[in-house]
Design a protein around this nucleic acid. Structure first.
Lengths: 144, 144
DNA sequence: ATAACTGCAAACGTTTTGCCAGCAT
DNA sequence: ATGCTGGCAAAACGTTTGCAGTTAT
């Protein structure tokens, strides 16, 4: 079952990727849409969403699922961490040495006034893992 | 400017709180709605949302803003961490010693097969902090 | 009488989708 | 000719809100 689809880097995709690469913040789909529009006035928000998904699948960008109402996207692919402003919603990268105890990291100093933090692990729970084993074609149940 | 509102713990609020307290998982508003309905068939989803917000404000429960599409609520108030199943969306608490280096924690073992993790700090960015200082009545701009 | 609260339905903001025309191969 | 792609508009989804009637004090 190979996938023979031939993908193109269309003008829309290139501009979206470029917009994301040039922004130091992490942008929402709508922010990207607004930044692309001056150069490409007829692009639609649906295209932005579709192509952000496409770029994620290609491993070129990352979809961030943090708190707040809107998803944000970023280019940086290595594992790293984020600060989010509770007032304006802006998201930035945060750097610290991971060889320190978590307790110490939590009290980290940065330009933000830190109110809280959140550490979330994402994985597959025991029962879903069992379900996947029962279906040997690799297609575990569940849509999205 | 004091707040003289008198709040009641209504039947709806009590049942919602009880439902949350009895569940070991972290529930979405809709899951709570479905569990409350058998006992109180005319409750509306709007009431569930309104009362979840109310219980948060009272400090009785916690609103979780993790990845995934839906917000989840929990009773446990001390700081702790979560695992989320990427297949079924279930969220559970996770325990580990925080005096260990983050690197070690990241490789933690639990019943889940961990795929990734995410550490998010929530705070106020420098420019929003400045904006708040300029408005000395304490009401920083921004709605939500 | 008053204020808090509810159910219902409509509105909201973000994201996804269906459809058909356009374009590259 | 095929099939990926884009624009548009509608739908979908979780959540919030306005309103009018109910409840507790």
């Amino acid at each position: 079952m190979r996938n023979d689809k031939k993908y193109r880097i269309t003008r829309q995709r290139a501009i979206i990727l470029d917009t994301l690469a040039k922004s130091k913040n992490h942008l929402t789909a709508d922010e990207i849409y607004e930044r692309v529009r001056p150069k490409m006035p007829h692009i639609s928000l649906g295209t932005v969403y579709r192509n952000l998904d496409f770029l994620c699948e290609q491993g070129l960008i990352n979809k961030l699922e943090l708190g707040g109402n809107m998803r944000r996207y970023e280019c940086r692919m290595e594992c790293h961490y984020h600060v989010r402003c509770i007032e304006c919603g802006k998201v930035e990268d945060i750097e610290f040495a991971t060889d320190k105890p978590l307790e110490e990291i939590i009290g980290l100093e940065c330009e933000y006034e830190i109110i809280e933090h959140q550490l979330e692990f994402i994985g597959i729970c025991p029962s879903c893992r069992k379900a996947a084993t029962r279906e040997p074609d690799g297609k575990a149940g569940k849509s999205k």
